[in-house]
């Protein structure tokens, strides 16, 4: 039962985030905006289309979307999403979580380079360089959770039940929360790090890498991106919201609510900020690392 609920949340919830973000952006801009379920419609449509594949490419081009989606979903198996523990949980799985996302990025970048396009190479270079900086921020942030709970398994870190980490060490974990939010924005190519709606190849990071993917390939990529965004939103929700105090169904219900709130927050940020210059992105990532490190320093004995 718990496994079914987990899988349903993991597979069905993600596109909703896209719908919410789009709706919030439209509302702020004074438009009616697309329906909330628009990303679902798009995925279904993309799955039915035919694909155009460049003769330059090899199997790596096809592997990019598959690996990206699979790693995100497997990583999702390690996060506790509701009242129960995570289906795939072991000591030290938080390192595996970070490295799974790394594997996804590796193949996304490689698939981009496989097209032989200058623009996609540019995106791959940016993505690979930024992710080298995202990784310390993510792992240091997770480490702060480890110090406050004494376990290295995500299910125990974010599992709720016993006093939530936030009540044990509020201030440091708030710093870490901000850092993880920055990581969320960077890892998922949101404003101010990247603009998923841009139409100029020169300025894009993630979107430029997938220029050549079409049809089902593009569908897998978009779905994978929503899953990844949901994972990070879920981490934030589990970190910040009280869990395990009410009945089990309350925990299961809390996650979608929280994820929608995070999505609305992302939408609000996207409608109120411009993306920063590319050269400033590394600095923001370094500041995310530093925030995590400060949180850690406060927690270290």
């Amino acid at each position: 039962m718990n496994l079914v609920l987990h899988l349903l949340l993991l597979t069905l919830l993600p596109p909703l985030m896209g719908g919410v973000i789009g709706r919030v952006r439209a509302l702020v801009a004074g438009r009616r905006g697309p329906p909330l379920l628009q990303p679902y419609y798009e995925l279904v449509k993309l799955a039915q289309k035919s694909a155009v594949i460049s003769p330059t490419t090899s199997w790596v081009f096809l592997a990019g979307p598959v690996v990206g989606l699979t790693t995100a979903l497997v990583a999702g198996l390690m996060l506790p999403l509701g009242a129960a523990s995570a289906p795939l949980s072991f000591t030290g799985d938080l390192v595996a979580f970070a490295y799974l996302l790394g594997l996804g990025r590796f193949f996304t970048s490689a698939a981009a380079l496989d097209t032989g396009s200058a623009f996609e190479g540019m995106g791959a270079a940016r993505e690979a360089t930024y992710s080298a900086l995202i990784e310390p921020a993510l792992l240091l942030g997770m480490m702060a959770l480890v110090l406050s709970t004494g376990s290295t398994s995500l299910a125990a870190l974010l599992g709720g039940g016993a006093p939530s980490p936030l009540s044990v060490a509020g201030a440091p974990l708030l710093l870490v929360g901000v850092s993880l939010f920055l990581v969320l924005l960077a890892e998922n190519s949101r404003v101010p790090f990247d603009d998923p709606a841009t139409h100029l190849e020169l300025t894009m990071v993630h979107e430029v890498m997938v220029l050549d993917h079409s049809g089902p390939l593009l569908g897998l990529i978009q779905y994978g991106a929503w899953v990844k965004l949901t994972l990070f939103a879920a981490i934030l929700v589990r970190l910040l919201l009280p869990l395990g105090w009410g009945p089990a169904w309350a925990d299961w219900a809390l996650l979608p609510v929280g994820v929608v709130v995070v999505a609305a927050g992302i939408g609000a940020i996207e409608s109120s900020m411009a993306r920063t210059r590319l050269l400033l992105v590394p600095r923001m990532l370094v500041s995310a690392c530093l925030l995590s490190a400060f949180g850690l320093l406060l927690l270290a004995r």
């Binding site: 799955a47 039915q48 289309k49 035919s50 694909a51 155009v52 594949i53 460049s54 003769p55 330059t56 490419t57 097209t115 032989g116 396009s117 623009f119 220029l211 050549d212 049809g215 089902p216």
Partner: peptide, 9 residues
């Protein structure tokens, strides 16, 4: 869906 071949964008 079918696959077509087309040059890199």
């Amino acid at each position: 869906g079918g696959v077509r071949s087309g040059e890199t964008w």
